[in-house]
Amino acid sequence: MNTLLVASEVKKTFIMHMRGGVELPVVANVSFSLKASSCAVLGGPSGVGKSSILKMLYGNYGTDSGQILVQHHGRHVDVASASPRMVLEIRRDTIGYVSQFLRAVPRVSALDVAAEPLLIRGVAQETAHERARELFAELNLPERLWSLPPATFSGGEQQRVNIARGFITDHPILLLDEPTASLDAANRAVVIDLIARKKAEGAALLGIFHDQDVRTAVADHVIDVSAFAAGKSAA
């Protein structure tokens, strides 16, 4: 099977200069790979560094050392050392991300928020909006909300806008940070179905799911993040 991402010996430490330079080790020796048509799940107790790993893969957090090789436009690029421009290109075309919380921009409608990843890839606005509407309908987001900015939406409504935004493209790699945390059972089932379809299309997914049912339904294998606990492997 085609390997789309390989993380090897990735290490991350926060240095808190506001607290006298105290070092906060997060993870070390993070090594795993993601294959096409599969969904891996990051497991382990909260605070163990699961979200930090997703953020490093997305280029949102820096790394101390190690490599994150991604198959991007047919070649291998290391996200950990890539230029900001390359990271943006990888996000546009290769790695999608559904964050836990939506960062709402004033005055921008839910429809535009969800359609944006297609628009920046040059898809026509009408096509992008149509695709966003389909996803909103599938996710049972009330139609009266579609043209409103999501700032005042409930947590579950914002999360569905975020999911639509993440699933709207055909990125080969998709990272999911607790996409079902504030959804009811019916909408969790929709997300499980969306994930299954992405897999069938050949995407490699990596997610964090606290909900046991969702995890059981989507996970092909579990990556135990406690094994990467910093300190454990400290030389």
């Binding site: 096409a36 436009h73 055909d170 995407a203």
Partner: peptide, 16 residues
């Protein structure tokens, strides 16, 4: 078209 096909097509077309 699957994702891997898309990647291959892009590679074949050459990097801009």
């Amino acid at each position: 078209m699957s994702h891997s096909d898309t990647l291959e097509a892009l590679a074949a077309a050459g990097i801009p």
